[in-house]
Structure formats: C-alpha cells, structure tokens
Amino acid sequence: MFDRKEDIMKWTEKWDGERFENGRPKVSDDILERMRRITLEEAWMPLWNNGYRFQFEGGFKSVQPDQIMIGRAVTAVMVPSRPDLHETLVAVGAEEGRKGFYNQWVIDVLGENDVVVADMFDKVHLGTYVGGNLSTAIATRTKRGGAVVWGGIRDNEQVSKIKEINVYYRGSDPTAIADVVMTGMNVPCRIGNAICLPGDIVFGTPYGVIFIPPHLAEQTVVEAEKSQIRDVFGFVRLRSGTYTTAQIDSPWTTELWSDFEDWFRSSEDAKEFQHLSWEQEIEEARNRPAGSGLPQVRE
C-alpha cells in the first residue's frame, strides 16, 4: 500500500483542512511555527485529555540533542525480508515509477517541513535507514524537517553536521540497509509505544517524540500558548505576593481573571500572545457555583 489517496483520506477523515495531492493532511505552516515555542508536556496534555494515549515515545538517540524538530509525517513500515514478497513489491514500485531501494522511495516524495517516520522494527544491524547521502537529501527536500527511525542509522559524524534537520534513531551501525521489505508508505505506523498516521505533526524534543493528529494540532498549540502565558502571569503575581500558590493553581475566580485580562492587554510579556481569546474561560468562571472558586485576593 504505497501512498494511496483513498486510504489516507479515510484514516484522517477527522481533518477538514487543506490536503496534499495524495490526501495527506496539510496543517498550516503558521501552526507548525507556533508549535516550535511550546514544550513536550504542553503538547502531550491535550492529546491525553482527548483519549490519545499512545502518541509519545522517548526511547531515542538524536543527532542534534538540543534541537527541536517540527514537521508533517510521511510514514513507512518495514518488515523482515521474504523473497516472494520482495519481488512482488519491487515490481509494484517499478510500475509506479519508483527508483532505488525502499527508503529512497520515501525520501523521493518529501516536501518542505516533512519528516520521515519509519518503523524498522527496531533493526539496527543491516537496518540503517539513512546515512550521510540520504540525510542530505532529506535536508534538501524538507528544509527543517528530518527523520524518526525505529531502527538504525549510519554515518553519524556526517549526519550530525547537517544542522538544518534532526534525526531520531535507536542505534548506529556501519552496515547499509538490507534484508527488509517495505509493506506500506503513508500508512499507520508504529514507533515503539506510539502510533503515527500520515500527516501527523511530528514534535521532536530532547526528551522524546510526540505524534500530534492534525485535527488536534491547532487545539494543542492554543492550549499550550494559554498555559504558557498564564504561567508568566502567575509567576509575576507570586513574586509580588498578590496571590498564594493555591489561588494560582486552582480554578480562577472572576476577580483573578479580571486582573489577568488587565495585565494581558498591557504587558510586554504578553505581546506575542494577543491572538488568544479568553471568553470561554471567563464564562466558565462566571458560571462556577458560589464557594467553589478561590479565596479572596490578599491585600
């Protein structure tokens, strides 16, 4: 199943935005850029709260340990080689005009801000999905994307010098990729304890990788940004002694929300967050039963 539009559309039917020609969801570049400023925990919480419990995997090494990676997933699933299956799928690839080995087929379809997500069934020896040449090709095609490989890579010294991208992997080996067959491209893909679909937003951090369904990408960013700026406000008021930690950490009263709104409109710290709206949160505070909020503000 190599890059079939009807399948991709069905698997990602909750996404109602723009799509690539092959049906892969195309989350906007604006959302991708905003996601670069949030943390792993901020990205994880909305997914968990929406029932997406298998979106994170932390068991990786990376070639740029301190570098965030954000991009749209292009997935690949590999299995151990079997001669008859290999012959059949190589013939299918040839009919579709694909050249080289399976991993090259995937890299050939990458675009800007894409990330290869490859299940190599944790194979490292003879399981090196990319080396120096293919990583250079990934950088050329994706600009700031990269790869997540549940398996091996080679040419680490060369790959680590390609600063534009990041590559997450399980282990290193000098051998080239061999004895594998690709059974799917742009199909559901298992990466350790996580699952990734084509078009998911791949959020790579120093601590692991999260796969964010496209229909939850904007919600994830908005909730993360709101959490960030509320924390900034809370730190300011805690340092001044205006509120206790119990007041900041509990559901906010309408009085506290009023104080926050005044600060939010005027503070330089909140300038880049002015696109956010707080109507829903304030309405919830107004409708909260009396006595269920916080103590009164300290003088």
Results as ranks from 00 to 15, higher is better:
Ile8Glu: 06
Met9Asp: 15
Lys10Cys: 13
Thr12Ser: 13
Glu13Pro: 01
Arg19Gln: 03
Asn22Tyr: 13
Gly23Asn: 05
Arg24Asn: 09
Pro25Gly: 06
Lys26His: 07
Lys26Phe: 13
Asp29Gly: 03
Glu33Lys: 13
Arg34Trp: 03
Arg34Tyr: 02
Arg36Trp: 01
Arg36Met: 07
Arg36Ile: 00
Arg37Trp: 07
Arg37Phe: 09
Thr39Lys: 10
Leu40Ala: 13
Glu41Ala: 15
Ala43Asn: 04
Ala43Phe: 00
Trp44Glu: 02
Trp44Phe: 14
Met45Gly: 04
Pro46Met: 02
Gly51Phe: 00
Phe54Asn: 12
Phe56Tyr: 13
Glu57His: 14
Ile70Pro: 01
Gly71Glu: 02
Arg72Leu: 07
Val74Thr: 07
Thr75Cys: 06
Ala76Leu: 15
Met78Ile: 07
Met78Arg: 07
Val79Gln: 15
Pro80Val: 02
Ser81Thr: 12
Ser81Pro: 03
Asp84Ile: 08
Val90Lys: 12
Val92Arg: 10
Ala94Thr: 08
Ala94Gly: 05
Glu96Cys: 11
Glu96Pro: 05
Gly100Lys: 13
Gly100Ile: 09
Phe101Gly: 04
Asn103Ala: 10
Asn103Thr: 11
Asn103His: 10
Gln104Leu: 09
Val106Ser: 07
Leu110Asn: 05
Glu112Trp: 02
Asp114Ala: 02
Asp119Thr: 03
Met120Arg: 14
Asp122Glu: 11
Lys123Val: 04
His125Phe: 11
Gly127Met: 01
Leu134Val: 06
Ser135Thr: 06
Ala137Phe: 10
Ile138Ser: 09
Ala139Gln: 02
Arg141Gln: 07
Arg144Pro: 04
Gly145Asn: 05
Trp150Lys: 12
Gly152Cys: 05
Asn156Phe: 05
Glu157Cys: 10
Gln158Gly: 12
Val159Gly: 05
Ser160Asn: 12
Glu164Asn: 11
Ile165Met: 08
Tyr169Met: 14
Ile177Lys: 05
Ala178Asp: 11
Ala178Met: 14
Val181Tyr: 01
Val181Glu: 05
Met182Lys: 10
Thr183His: 11
Met185His: 15
Val187Asn: 09
Pro188Tyr: 00
Pro188His: 00
Cys189Trp: 15
Asn193Gly: 13
Gly199Ile: 00
Gly199Trp: 01
Asp200Met: 09
Ile201Cys: 00
Ile201Gln: 01
Gly208Thr: 09
Phe211Asp: 02
Thr220Trp: 00
Val222Trp: 01
Ser227Arg: 14
Arg230Cys: 13
Val232Asn: 06
Phe235Leu: 13
Val236Pro: 04
Gly241Val: 04
Ile248Glu: 07
Asp249Tyr: 13
Asp249Glu: 14
Thr253Val: 06
Thr254Ile: 14
Trp257His: 13
Trp257Cys: 07
Asp262Val: 15
Glu268Gly: 10
Ala270Gln: 07
Phe273Ser: 09
Leu276Phe: 04
Ser277Arg: 13
Ser277Ile: 12
Trp278Leu: 06
Glu279Gln: 08
Glu284Ala: 15
Arg286Pro: 05
Ala290Gln: 09
Ser292Leu: 13
Ser292Ile: 14
Leu294Ser: 15
Pro295Gln: 09
